[in-house]
Design a protein around this nucleic acid. Structure first.
Lengths: 195, 195
DNA sequence: CGACATAAATACCAATCAGTATGTTTTGCA
DNA sequence: TGCAAAACATACTGATTGGTATTTATGTCG
């Protein structure tokens, strides 16, 4: 990686961390260049404006960072229920990107920016769509091989599971880590009694 | 209500609307006084600072406004499943406070402010705690009168339901109203197969 | 009326914001 | 080695931020 590329990805990574903790709008460019120890000239050389940097974070860090947690686990052979549970547990316990009190970076950004900014909406929508499709596809496969009946519409079930994930990340900000345990307990029961 | 009280509650109501749509930090005091057509002097006569106003919104508008959607429905006699479903449907379809693209005011504020500000955390925690207790109590009653077995821990189930609500409000910002329908479909099935 | 608190209006402030203008250094390559 | 372009640095700008100081109006009670 060239020096310029290093600078760019360093900015993105540090900005990602700050935005994760403070929110997008509450994180100033001055915050970012202070943390990165890069000057404003360098920042605006690499990004046209703050929004372009924000979108780069979504597309280059969040999108690529989340794929392993989404698709990869679901593509494993074996029981869907096990895979769907593993997916959830990995997401909740990954301590690279995730922290109970600060929630999920992607969910946070949806909450803050989706209603305000069309470009953010679109970029975040792409992530959610990928995830939704991956879950629905796994359910369809399970229905085909007899692990599940067709009592549930795959798309609906996928929406329900995604919603429950987004929600526990939010609830966790208030109730702390105990909420994760309670949630996983019920989520497991939910999966097991799926017909 | 005296004239001064009218001014105060007018500020709170308009500020609530702006914060709902733009977020707390993104809503400036100048925004609020412009919308309210009240001067800065009046604003700072009624509130020590922006935070005090924000907390007043949580305690006086959100808290009191949400109670009917939480406790009242759950206290109705009859089937818990029906009550839990009604509670959710009412919350999702109330168009006084709620809008698909802007989510839930309380959930939004948790997402934005709970990690940043202890006072907000505390005030919002109070709302969630009340709700959690009301759901758990309804489940305990249902277990006592035989509508439910004790296969589920009431507190865990309450957490799970709250999380799913918070989540669908977030997911709805991206996927739109169709997500609500898909969610309610699955939520109903979830309630019906609870033992 | 007169006195005094309540309520609200006006003008201002230092700090911070995203972004720019203009310069200097570093790098790749002929 | 020379030199253009890429990469970065510095200093600044106008707008906006939350908040204050000071002044003015309004209501109320003796």
């Amino acid at each position: 990686m060239s020096k310029a590329q290093t600078t760019r990805s360093n900015i993105l990574l540090q900005a990602f961390g700050l935005i994760y903790r403070q929110g997008y709008q509450a994180t100033s460019i001055d915050d970012i260049i202070a943390k990165t120890e890069v000057t404003k000239g360098a920042f605006f050389y690499h990004f046209k404006n703050k929004e372009e940097m924000g979108l780069a974070i979504v597309n280059e860090i969040m999108y690529t960072g989340l794929i392993p947690y989404m698709k990869d686990i679901l593509d494993r052979p074996g029981n869907v229920r096990v895979n769907l549970y593993q997916m959830m547990e990995n997401l909740l316990h990954s301590d690279v990107f995730f922290n109970v009190e600060y929630g999920c970076p992607a969910v946070n950004l949806i909450d803050e920016m989706a209603p305000l900014n069309k470009s953010f909406h679109q970029a975040l929508s792409r992530i959610m769509k990928q995830w939704h499709e991956a879950i629905a596809a796994a359910i369809v496969r399970a229905q085909r091989n007899g692990q599940l009946t067709d009592a549930h519409r795959p798309g609906h079930l996928a929406t329900y599971i995604i919603a429950s994930y987004s929600g526990i990340r939010n609830t966790g900000k208030i109730m702390g880590k105990a909420a994760y345990a309670a949630f996983l307990d019920e989520y497991e029961k939910f999966l097991n009694q799926l017909t």
